[in-house]
Design a protein around this nucleic acid. Structure first.
Length: 260
DNA sequence: CTCAGTGTTCAGTG
DNA sequence: TCACTGAACACTGA
């Protein structure tokens, strides 16, 4: 479920395993998930011999900073993931990118359903989609006053605006629902109808959820037991941890789980 | 067989 | 130009 916490966890993985390593060999699948001025094979050729000097993330987008000044940009879509493999460890299916590092380990990107992107960019932060993102609530300054002003201008349901990457870079469907749940907001509420206390609660809940999810490496099994998260999947659970009925509705074009 | 789905982006409307 | 809605994208699994 690649939303901000998962992507941040993968960025950290890449950071501690690949920074200061040289890419000895690279493989890019012949797949239009890798679209670029260059063919996948040409991208692999450029990657070969490059040292990784850093990692970056904004919202759900992340990239490796290469020694030649370019960025290896990764977007995970709905089903992408990043794996670090030691010698002998088998690779996952649907592998789209493999970096063989100088210490003998591999960093690989896999994507089951091919909604995602791999690109070699001169400056990932300067071009869309990253350049169009609003603040990342964890990585950027995210003042309450700015949020109040933004939301006061929006008439869409709060659930829909939580998914707007220009306002909350990195929030996805389950986080948006979790925020409404923990902040005691009806996801149908129009943003311009929210009281200033509600906006404060929304922001507090969002930051709390993101920090906790990142602190447990986005491992859902370690999310607090009282989070709606554990009860919303598969539409199996009728009730949350307190026995309150969970509703499933379409809001902002997506399935929304909420408790009145 | 049908359909929903963790994300983004575009067309159409107002 | 913007805000908003709904559809499209690709594929799997329920």
């Amino acid at each position: 479920m690649p939303e901000l916490p998962e992507v941040e966890t993968w960025r950290r993985l890449a950071h501690r395993t690949a920074v200061d390593q040289t890419i000895e060999q690279a493989f890019c699948a012949e797949d239009d998930i890798i679209y670029d001025r260059n063919s996948p094979a040409a991208v692999a050729k450029i990657l070969q011999g490059q040292k990784v000097i850093g990692t970056s993330r904004k919202g759900k987008h992340c990239w490796l900073d290469l020694e030649n000044g370019q960025d290896l940009y990764l977007h995970f879509g709905m089903t992408g993931s990043l794996w670090w493999l030691q010698p002998g460890e088998p690779e996952p299916s649907h592998l789209k990118l493999r970096l063989e590092l100088s210490d003998g380990n591999r960093l690989v990107y896999r994507n089951l359903r091919r909604i995602g992107k791999i690109r070699l960019l001169d400056d990932a932060a300067a071009v869309p989609p990253v350049s169009r993102l609003g603040p990342d609530p964890l990585g950027d300054s995210f003042p309450l006053a700015d949020l109040q002003a933004q939301l006061a201008k929006r008439k869409a349901p709060v659930k829909a605006v939580l998914l707007d990457q220009k306002v909350f870079a990195g929030v996805g469907n389950w986080i948006a629902d979790e925020v409404c749940y923990q902040a005691h907001l009806n996801p149908h509420t129009k943003c311009d109808q929210l009281t200033s206390n509600q906006v404060r609660e929304l922001r507090n809940s969002l930051l709390k959820i993101l920090k906790k999810a990142v602190a447990v490496d986005a491992d859902a099994d370690r999310f607090p037991k009282n989070w709606l998260f554990h009860y919303r999947w598969g539409k199996k659970a009728e009730c949350d941890a307190k026995g309150q009925k969970i509703l499933f509705e379409q809001i902002g074009g997506r399935t929304t789980a909420w408790v009145p």
